[in-house]
């Protein structure tokens, strides 16, 4: 399967995506819902998390991917841009660095970058969003579990279900089996094992046009099934709602689920989740160093509003803290039901 970009699909254009999202007149504009909740304009609370997208290259081509990542994507963060990120982490005392992609490990400077972040402070919480299969994709990645352990990285890995059928239908043929193998390798060095201090969290997102199950109920089910059938241990399960952008938007339209899915998100709008959206304490950095309110805005090319601080090289903490967060119709995905963020539910 090729990325939407490689297919020259109209939805590979963020302008077209936004036109589609804004054309559905029966869906209340998101900003109006925020107004009703006393949250508009949406403002940051603080900057606790720097989420860095290290590139769109990935060894997988997942059907729901909001990044439209895949082997045919060549956008990769350079070491120069990573240098600007390190300056910000150091100077602004950033406590949480969240590395994502694509598969961040495919960036040739990934290991250098992780080690440089760790040199800044022992206390920085570094999360790598590892797709699992990268660990077994090539012998040069087989030692990643040891590398993660040495640098005390927290791992967050997608696993849509505890069965092959559902996982492979979303993430590609054979992904479940490879993911189980990678999870066994992570467990073998201590990840997810009680008392090890090595955090291995799993991320669930629905394999279709429906909302995620209760995070706590699903975590119990995942723990029971993965432990009894595969001997796998992990720490927490985060449930994430699929946002209507990129490949998931393409799926919604193609399967004629788009309108009903947007209605479902709107009907499930939760003001408590809206107050706790992740963009209020996060800045997302694109592979080319531009700054966004979140990874989803990044993919829609909606840069932060602060015209004097739109690139990591011109970081201005005061401007960023005082900015208005850019919102659009896709934001209903983060405010539906129990809420959704890269760290799971928000209410």
């Amino acid at each position: 399967m090729k990325s939407l970009k490689a297919q020259n699909h109209p939805l590979s254009s963020s302008t077209h995506e936004l036109e589609v999202l804004e054309a559905q007149s029966e869906i209340t504009p998101f900003y109006k819902k925020l107004k009703e909740s006393g949250l508009f304009p949406l403002k940051p609370t603080q900057i606790e998390v720097l989420q860095i997208n290290m590139g769109k290259m990935c060894n997988q081509v997942c059907k729901h991917c909001h990044v439209d990542a895949g082997p045919d994507r060549k956008e990769i963060m350079t070491r120069d841009t990573m240098g600007f990120c390190l300056d910000v982490i150091r100077n602004e005392n950033i406590k949480n660095v969240d590395l994502t992609g694509g598969a961040p490990e495919m960036n040739p400077d990934f290991r250098w970058f992780v080690e440089e972040i760790r040199k800044i402070s022992d206390k920085i919480n570094i999360i790598v969003r590892c797709n699992l299969t990268i660990i077994v994709a090539n012998p040069k990645y087989n030692d990643l579990p040891e590398f993660f352990k040495t640098n005390r990285i927290d791992i967050a890995s997608s696993l849509p279900y505890f069965t092959a059928v559902k996982t492979d239908s979303q993430r590609g043929e054979g992904v479940f089996e490879k993911s189980i193998k990678a999870l066994n390798m992570l467990n073998a060095v201590g990840y997810g094992i009680a008392g090890s201090g090595l955090v291995l969290d799993l991320v669930y997102n629905p394999s279709g046009a429906f909302l995620p199950a209760s995070q706590s109920d699903l975590e119990l089910e995942f723990k029971k099934k993965l432990s009894s059938q595969y001997g796998i241990e992990f720490n927490s399960l985060f449930t994430i709602t699929n946002l209507p952008i990129s490949r998931f938007l393409e799926y919604l339209i193609r399967s004629e689920n788009y309108e009903s899915y947007m209605e479902k998100l709107l009907d499930a709008y939760n003001p408590v989740a809206a107050a706790n959206v992740m963009c209020r304490n996060t800045i997302s950095v694109g592979w080319d160093g531009f700054l966004y309110d979140c990874d989803f805005n990044q993919m829609l090319e909606l840069k932060v509003e602060t015209t004097g601080s739109q690139h990591i090289s011109e970081w201005n903490q005061i401007q960023l803290l005082n900015r208005n967060i850019v919102v659009n119709q896709h934001c209903f995905g983060c405010t539906a039901g129990a809420g959704s963020s890269c760290g799971g539910t928000t209410s």
């Binding site: 279900y161 069965t163 059928v165 559902k166 629905p206 279709g208 429906f210 909302l211 995620p212 199950a213 209760s214 109920d217 699903l218 089910e221």
Partner: peptide, 12 residues
Amino acid sequence: TVDTMEKGCDEE
């Protein structure tokens, strides 16, 4: 059907 899927049930 939707509700069971949103409760984390699978097709089986």
